[in-house]
Simulated scan of single mutants.
Amino acid sequence: MAMIANAKVQTLPEPWSGEIHSGKHQLMTDKPESFGGQDKGLAPYDLLCSALISCTMITLRMYAQHKGIELGEFTVEADFSANKEGQEWIDRRVSFLHPLSDELNQKVLDICQKTPVTKTLLRSVEINTTLV
């Protein structure tokens, strides 16, 4: 078993606000003002989308470097949605500054489905919680 990532959040005095530490990095988490927060940082589902799009961008760049392909500048966006029936889904969009060939477009779509975070989200993840 290998630990892949670690993060810790410390509560702040303001309701819903916290400071996340991961390695030598830190960022704020909070809820939007419409939910009683102060919108000082990313909300939990924003962090989830950020993990997915970060992994997508890195995986595509690694693939391009490995294959000697020039993808050029691109962006990845994600929206997390839910409906009244309890269904949840993420819409991910990849946009390239310069058009790619049809063949490369299809390869990009295939790679997006194989990124590590995508694969984690597509399967069940066991979450064990302990009080320490």
Rank of each mutant, 00 (worst) to 15 (best):
M1Q: 12
A2V: 14
M3P: 10
M3S: 12
M3V: 12
I4F: 12
I4V: 14
A5I: 09
A5P: 03
A5N: 13
A7W: 09
A7E: 04
K8L: 14
V9T: 12
V9F: 03
V9A: 15
Q10W: 05
T11C: 10
T11Y: 11
L12D: 03
P13C: 02
P15W: 02
W16D: 04
E19Q: 14
I20H: 01
I20E: 01
H21T: 12
G23K: 08
G23Q: 11
H25E: 10
Q26N: 14
Q26M: 15
Q26T: 11
L27V: 09
M28K: 11
M28E: 08
T29Y: 04
D30H: 02
D30N: 01
K31H: 11
P32K: 11
P32G: 08
E33W: 00
E33D: 09
F35I: 08
G36Q: 08
G36W: 02
G37F: 04
G37H: 04
G37A: 05
G37D: 02
G37S: 05
G37I: 04
K40D: 07
G41Y: 06
G41V: 04
G41P: 01
L42K: 05
A43P: 06
P44F: 02
Y45S: 08
Y45E: 08
D46A: 14
L47A: 07
L48F: 09
C49I: 01
S50G: 15
A51H: 03
S54F: 01
S54M: 08
S54E: 06
T56D: 09
T56L: 13
T56C: 08
M57R: 05
I58E: 00
I58S: 06
Y63F: 11
A64H: 01
Q65V: 01
H66T: 14
K67M: 08
I69G: 01
E73I: 12
E73C: 10
F74E: 00
F74C: 04
F74N: 00
T75M: 08
T75R: 09
V76Q: 00
A78C: 09
F80Q: 05
F80G: 04
F80E: 02
S81M: 13
A82N: 12
A82I: 07
N83G: 05
N83M: 09
K84A: 15
E85W: 03
G86C: 05
Q87C: 06
E88T: 12
E88W: 04
E88D: 09
W89Q: 13
W89T: 09
I90V: 11
D91I: 04
R93W: 08
V94I: 14
V94L: 02
S95P: 02
L97V: 13
H98T: 13
H98M: 07
L100N: 01
L100Q: 15
S101V: 03
S101A: 06
E103K: 10
N105P: 00
Q106A: 14
Q106M: 10
K107R: 13
K107D: 01
I111R: 00
C112K: 02
Q113M: 09
K114S: 11
T115L: 05
P116L: 10
V117W: 03
V117C: 05
K119A: 06
K119L: 15
K119E: 10
T120N: 05
T120H: 04
T120L: 12
T120Q: 07
R123I: 10
R123V: 12
S124Q: 13
V125A: 11
I127T: 15
N128A: 14
T129Q: 11
T129H: 10
L131H: 11
L131Y: 11
V132W: 08
